[in-house]
Design a protein around this nucleic acid. Structure first.
Lengths: 269, 269
DNA sequence: ATAAGGTCTGCCCTAAAGGGAGAGTCAATA
DNA sequence: TATTGACTCTCCCTTTAGGGCAGACCTTAT
């Protein structure tokens, strides 16, 4: 006969747990002293304690364990409990993996933004651009309409999206209203659906300038890149691109002073 | 201005949750009517509610969310929270995968036992046996000593074990005490360690008989297989094998009437 | 006898709400 | 204006599997 402390050391279950299991009638001491109320356990309890501990380690609830111990005398009878538990855990894992995907998306976005902030001088650069598969929605309207277009593309393309969102501007002049805009996202694959065109955007030689700061001040950087192009005698090809490297995030609006936008004129001659 | 019910529909948070978030000062209504105590929300609360819901979906605790909303104004500031959360979830997934492994082990064992119970007639069969890589512990003693030997092998071989445990009997006669026994488990790979020999067990033509019932009654099946061998004029080769297809399980002792043991005499001539 | 240490019950605490009681409030209708 | 029905308020209890603590009681050794 073991006192509760000894039995706790034997079974690896805490005293509190043993008292709880007694209360829930999962593990009833062999003897309870009438006078003192002391619980005494013997070797027959060891086996049952081992089973309970094992099932707790498998994360069965106490009520499940109660049912298992009540209904089952043989491993064969618990298989259905185990199958059910397995399914539960698998679906839990699935859910957690989705969360991780979401977390990683934001982590990655931020890391890239920090890299961009650290490693560029925000000067005009000439670069070679690859052809890019994109999903785009083209419309005439205002810049601010692009939010809705992004939502539409996100919904339609889901996990196929593989890069930063951007706008293509088809007007050769600056237009406040009624501008000819195509809102785009790079994709791995995808099909044309109502209003969304999936196609290749040609690459080639181009110039790039990263703009740091609020969107209201984009004009200055626009002038700068155009002045560079003119200075070099290039003839810019439409559409121009505006890539939103870092803007208002999925969670916070963020500080507009840290927004990063990349102007691209691809296909200079 | 929205009442709590309207705001609940807008934000997708339950009324109970909104009241809780108010109490925890995570989401404070724009106006609280002095007379009635009614909470009123406006559009400025919508954004914060969206963030809170998003973070709850990522399974952040309310206190974490409080810290995030207090300390951070920008996505960049939350990256460390996200990294930490990601680590937590990954370790949780790891743990759950281990549980699943354990569950599957028992499920598989039981399914195989059920198959064995259904598909054999418990008659002597002649079969061809493959060579088997095993880890074995050899000793002189009683049958009941094998439990400890199995524990030793399990501990040393871990996840390399790939089949049912069995004993090899090297005595040509039945011995109660001081029998020459080798306790074995099939393994995928492994090295000789103190007391455990990892090697190939030769296969070949052999006879098999499955015994259903308690170990005490093994004698009858032993006689049966020996009678068969004698009747065919085979000369049995030592050691004989006793494979424990289903015995007392990891959880329950089970019903001995359903224990399954396979006798094998491999290498008949 | 006394002291030390073990054990008892009972109460409160955790996280994130959900459920319900009983009272008060708002808005529309008769 | 009165009433009705739908909302909302606060307060309290419940969930899980125990942990922590207080004050009382018990066992065992010296």
């Amino acid at each position: 006969m073991y006192s509760i402390g000894e039995f706790s050391r034997i079974s690896g279950l805490s005293i509190k747990a043993l008292r709880l299991y007694h209360e829930k009638e999962l593990l009833i001491p062999t003897l309870i002293d009438d006078q003192s109320g002391y619980r005494y356990y013997d070797h027959k309890n060891v086996e049952r304690a081992r089973i309970i501990k094992y099932l707790r380690d498998m994360e069965f609830s106490l009520s499940d364990i109660g049912e298992i111990l009540k209904d089952a005398n043989d491993e064969a009878d618990v298989v259905e409990f185990f199958e059910k538990k397995k399914k539960e855990i698998l679906s839990r894992i699935h859910q957690q993996k989705n969360i991780i995907k979401n977390l990683e998306l934001i982590i990655k976005t931020e890391k890239e933004a920090v890299m961009a902030l650290n490693h560029t001088e925000f000067e005009v650069e000439e670069k070679e651009f690859d052809t890019l598969l994109i999903a785009g929605v083209r419309y005439k309207g205002k810049y601010s309409d692009c939010g809705e277009a992004f939502k539409k593309i996100s919904k339609a393309m889901g996990w196929n999206i593989c890069g930063k969102p951007f706008n293509l501007y088809y007007d050769s002049e600056y237009k406040e209203e009624d501008a000819d805009i195509e809102t785009c996202m790079p994709v791995k694959k995808g099909k044309n659906v109502e209003g969304i065109s999936v196609r290749e955007l040609p690459g080639g030689k181009g110039v790039s300038l990263i703009h740091k700061g609020p969107y209201e001040a984009l004009g200055r950087s626009y002038e700068k890149i155009m002045a560079y192009i003119k200075g070099k005698g290039y003839r810019p090809k439409l559409p121009t691109r505006e890539v939103y490297l870092k803007g208002p995030g999925m969670i916070f609006k963020g500080n507009p002073e840290n927004y990063l936008t990349e102007f691209l004129v691809v296909g200079i001659q």
